[in-house]
C-alpha cells in the first residue's frame, strides 16, 4: 500500500518529521499570539484565557491534536536518531565537520528532548495548576520564582536552537529550495527562532526580574 511504502521509506519519514514540525510551528504561532496579550495587560490576558476556555470542546480537540502531533514528531525523531547511530556511530578516528556552524544540526535530538522536558513541566504547571486560581495569577506566581523563570529561558534557547536548523531543514525536506528564495529562507531561519525567543523569553524575564510584580 502506498502509505506503508511512504512511512517505511527514508524520505517519507523525513516528510513526517517536517510535516509534524510544521504543525508544531503553527501551534507555536497561535500560542505566541495568545500569550502576547500578557504584554498588553492582565485584564486582556485573563479575558483571552477565559474566552478560550469557554469553548471546552475546541480546547479539547486542539490540545489532543497537538499532543498527537508531538508524539509522532518525538517517536519518529527518536527512531531516526537511533537508526542513524547504527549506520554511522563514531566511524573515523579523526572526524571534521566542514560545514561552518554544525551545532544546531548536530544537537537536534538533544534540543528536542529539552523542549519535551519543558513541555511536561509547563503543562503540569499551567494546564493542571490549582483550580479556581485565575491563570494570570498562576503565570505571575510560577514565573515569579527566579529559577523557574531561568528554566523557561533555557528551554526557549533550546527551542531557538532547534528551529535554527529545523526551519530550514523542514523546507528542504518539502523540496522548497530555489535560488530566488534561498536568501529569504536563510534569513527566516534566523528571524523565526529569534522571534519566538524574544516573545516568550520576554514574558519569562518580565516576571522573574520582578518588573511584573504589579501584574
Amino acid at each position: 500500500m502506498w502509505f506503508v511504502r511512504f512511512v517505511s521509506s527514508s524520505i517519507g519519514k523525513k516528510a513526517i518529521m517536517a510535516l509534524s514540525g510544521l504543525m508544531l510551528l503553527l501551534f507555536l504561532c497561535s500560542h505566541a499570539a495568545g500569550n502576547a496579550t500578557i504584554y498588553m495587560s492582565r485584564a486582556v490576558f485573563q479575558g483571552y484565557a477565559d474566552e478560550l476556555h469557554s469553548h471546552p470542546l475546541i480546547v479539547l480537540i486542539f490540545s489532543s491534536g497537538i499532543f498527537l502531533v508531538f508524539l509522532v514528531h518525538i517517536c519518529v525523531g527518536i527512531l531516526l536518531f537511533l537508526q542513524n547511530r547504527q549506520t554511522a556511530a563514531s566511524r573515523y578516528s579523526v572526524s571534521t565537520r566542514v560545514v561552518a556552524n554544525p551545532l544546531a544540526s548536530k544537537t537536534m535530538p538533544y534540543s528536542g528532548l529539552c523542549i519535551l522536558v519543558f513541555v511536561l513541566v509547563h503543562v503540569s504547571g499551567f494546564a493542571f495548576g490549582p483550580e479556581h486560581e485565575p491563570i494570570a495569577e498562576t503565570v505571575k506566581r510560577l514565573l515569579g520564582h527566579f529559577f523557574y523563570g531561568l528554566f523557561y529561558l533555557v528551554a526557549f534557547a533550546a527551542l531557538a536552537l532547534h528551529l535554527s536548523h529545523g526551519f530550514w531543514s523542514m523546507l528542504q525536506t518539502f523540496g522548497v529550495n530555489h535560488p530566488r528564495y534561498n536568501p529569504l529562507i536563510a534569513k527566516s531561519t534566523l528571524v523565526v527562532p529569534l522571534f519566538f525567543l524574544l516573545l516568550f523569553g520576554g514574558i519569562a524575564l518580565y516576571f522573574m526580574t520582578g518588573i511584573g510584580a504589579s501584574f
Binding site: 527514508s10 524520505i11 519519514k13 523525513k14 516528510a15 531516526l80 537508526q83 542513524n84 549506520t87 554511522a88 565537520r97 566542514v98 560545514v99 554544525p102 544540526s105 548536530k106 537536534m108 536548523h165 530550514w168 531543514s169 528542504q172 525536506t173 518539502f174 523540496g175 522548497v176 529550495n177 530555489h178 535560488p179
Partner: peptide, 27 residues
C-alpha cells in the same frame, strides 16, 4: 544508507560541487 538530516556535509566535500538543491528536487 542512513537517513538524511540535512547536515549539508555532502555538498561541502563533493569534488564536483553537486548542490543539495538536487536533494530538494529528489524529495
Amino acid at each position: 544508507f542512513g537517513y538524511c538530516s540535512n547536515a549539508r556535509e555532502c555538498e561541502a566535500v563533493c569534488p564536483k560541487g553537486i548542490s543539495i538543491s538536487n536533494i530538494a528536487r529528489m524529495n
